[in-house]
Structure formats: structure tokens, C-alpha cells
């Protein structure tokens, strides 16, 4: 239990850091006043309510959702390299978002909220079917390469669309790496609900996913239906990844880093792991975002690039240790 408290303290610490660190330094009293007596003419209040708090909330939602998505993916595929970014699910959601907003010519909250989920669902179905992820007994190379292929395909299509439409490089940059800067234009409340729904569903089916990891035959004997559990896991991945992309764009490698750390804290207990994953995911993403603001101040590094720079070495560290031929 004390480990959970430590994680909670860590999360609280980065939340405070994220609220206090920024281009404009704020008076401590301003925080309280902004919440109780909001004055739209006071620049300190506006900074807090219109920039820092939405950004923090977006980080909490996206970080927690991606932590849960990564943990569920790794548990179902028994592959330590599974991550919504590496497997192309992020890319699928962002691709649907980009294509949809381009075709419809509008990018309001409702559209953003509706588009990412079909994209994430199709991409995860494709990558799991082609990568053999649902069989749970394949080596990590195949699933990872299937994700790399899906990512490359979508990247090529996005490049083509951006060039054809003569859109700015910013669209492309959004697609490559997510960020928390556009939080105010995102459907935060709705996506918080969806991410919570996905997390709740994950907690519900967690014991069955654990039974599945004993092997298909044994889990059948225990009364689990593998197909149903896997479909349930795909629903979780779709809901959480879709919500994360809708608020923050594609953020890679977070779902890769979080589950092993969560296992260290929670032990081999999937429900505990999921709770810790949500907290750790939010902690790491908010920390990465704050660090990205500090390193090049007054300019900033996008949170998605920060997580990729941290996550690349983590991927390599894990890749060295898995036995690629055997199921890991």
C-alpha cells in the first residue's frame, strides 16, 4: 500500500510542478483567486485557467489512458514491446482524425471526439490480426514489425495528403508527435469519461486476461472464452488510445515504458498493475511535458517528442533482453 502512496505523491509533485513552471511566473495567491474569484482581465488568472489547467488535465487523461492501453496490450499479447505507438494504433487514430477533418473541413470538439475511435479500432484490429497478436504465442518481432509496417504505410499516406492539400508543416508535425498545447480546443470532459470507461472495463476483465496468459487451453479449462477476452481487450485499447489521441495527438512509447515499472510496484496482479499504470502514465507524460517546456525555454519541445526520446532507449533495453524466436 505504501508503494501506491509513493506513486500518488510523485503524481502530486509533477502536477504542482506543471502548474507552477512556465514562461510566466505566478504569485501563489493567484492560484486560489483564479479558482474562487476568476477575473478574465487578470493575465495571471487567464494563464492558469486557459493554458495551464487544460494542459494538465489533457496530460492526466492521455497519460493515464496510454498507461492502461499499454498494460492491456502487453498482458494480452504477452509481448513486452507492445505499445499503442509502436503498433500503429496511435497512428490509425491520428490518421482518421487528419483525414476526417480534411474531408469535412471542420475540426471542432465533436468531430475530434468521433473520429479517433474508429481509427484506433481499425488499426488495432489490423495490427493484431496481421501480427498474430491475438494468438498470444508469437514472438515479439512479428508484432513489432507489423506495427512498423502499419506506421510506415500511414506515414506515407499522410505525407501524400499533406502535400496534395498544400497544408502547412504543422499538420504534419501534429501527426508525427502529439503535444498537450492544444488542450483548450479538445473535448476534455468527454474524453475523460471515455478513458475512465475504458479503464473500468479493463479492471473488469483483468482476471480473465490473467487467466488467458496461462495459455489458451488451460484458460478454456478455467471457463474463459479466449475470443471474448481478446475482443474485450481490443475494446479497451480502442477506447483508451482513441481518447488519448483526441486530447493530445499520437504519443509514442508511453505505453511501452509504463507497464514494466507498474509491475515493479504492483507485482504480478493485473488489477493493481492497471491502477498503477494509469497513475504512472499520467506522471511520466506530465513530467515529460514540463521538462519539454524547461529545456528550450521560451520555446518548447512537444511532449510526444520527449516521450519518444525517453522511450527509444527503453525500447532498445527491452529488445536486447527478449528472446525473439520464442514467445516472450
Amino acid at each position: 500500500m505504501s508503494k501506491f502512496l509513493w506513486i500518488a505523491c510523485l503524481l502530486l509533485l509533477v502536477v504542482v510542478g506543471s502548474l507552477t513552471i512556465g514562461v510566466r511566473s505566478l504569485d501563489p495567491a493567484a492560484y486560489w483567486q483564479a479558482l474562487t474569484a476568476y477575473d478574465p482581465r487578470d493575465p495571471a488568472h487567464v494563464t492558469l485557467m486557459a493554458i495551464r489547467i487544460p494542459r494538465l488535465v489533457a496530460g492526466l487523461i492521455a497519460g493515464a489512458a496510454l498507461g492502461v492501453a499499454g498494460t492491456v496490450m502487453q498482458a494480452v499479447t504477452r509481448n513486452p514491446l507492445a505499445d499503442p505507438g509502436i503498433l500503429g494504433v496511435n497512428a490509425g487514430a491520428a490518421f482518421a482524425l487528419l483525414v476526417g477533418t480534411t474531408l469535412l473541413g471542420r475540426a471542432d470538439e465533436a468531430i475530434v471526439a468521433l473520429l479517433t475511435f474508429p481509427g484506433a479500432a481499425i488499426a488495432s484490429a489490423i495490427v493484431f490480426a496481421l501480427g498474430g497478436g491475438l494468438r498470444g504465442d508469437v514472438g515479439p518481432v512479428r508484432l513489432t514489425l507489423a506495427g512498423a509496417a502499419l506506421n510506415a504505410l500511414l506515414l506515407s499516406l499522410v505525407t501524400a495528403i499533406v502535400l496534395v492539400r498544400q497544408d502547412s508543416l504543422d499538420v504534419f508535425r501534429f501527426w508525427v508527435a502529439g503535444s498537450l498545447t492544444q488542450a483548450t480546443t479538445r473535448p476534455l470532459a468527454e474524453m475523460a469519461g471515455v478513458a475512465a470507461l475504458g479503464t473500468g472495463f479493463a479492471l473488469l476483465i483483468a482476471p480473465r486476461i490473467e487467466a488467458l496468459s496461462l495459455g489458451t487451453a488451460l484458460s478454456r479449462g478455467l471457463g474463459t472464452r479466449p475470443g471474448r477476452v481478446q475482443a474485450g481487450a481490443l475494446v479497451v485499447v480502442t477506447l483508451t488510445t482513441g481518447a488519448a489521441v483526441a486530447v493530445a495527438g499520437p504519443i509514442a512509447f508511453l505505453g511501452l515504458m509504463v507497464p514494466p515499472l507498474a509491475r515493479l510496484v504492483a507485482g504480478h496482479n493485473l488489477r493493481g498493475e492497471l491502477v498503477v499504470s494509469a497513475m504512472l502514465g499520467a506522471t511520466i507524460l506530465i513530467f515529460a511535458d514540463t521538462l519539454g517546456r524547461l529545456l528550450l525555454a521560451p520555446s518548447e519541445i512537444r511532449a510526444g517528442i520527449m516521450t519518444a526520446l525517453i522511450g527509444g532507449p527503453v525500447f532498445l533495453w527491452i529488445a536486447r533482453r527478449v528472446r525473439p524466436g520464442a514467445s516472450a
Binding site: L81, I86, P140, V141, T144, L145, A148, A252, F253, A308, L309, G311, G312, P313, F315, L316, A319, R320, V322, P324
Partner: peptide
């Protein structure tokens, strides 16, 4: 696998 990781990074 390691090459893929170096590529990502």
C-alpha cells in the same frame, strides 16, 4: 529488433 529500436530513436 534492436535495429527497429535504433530506427525509432
Amino acid at each position: 529488433l534492436v535495429g527497429l529500436g535504433v530506427g525509432f530513436f
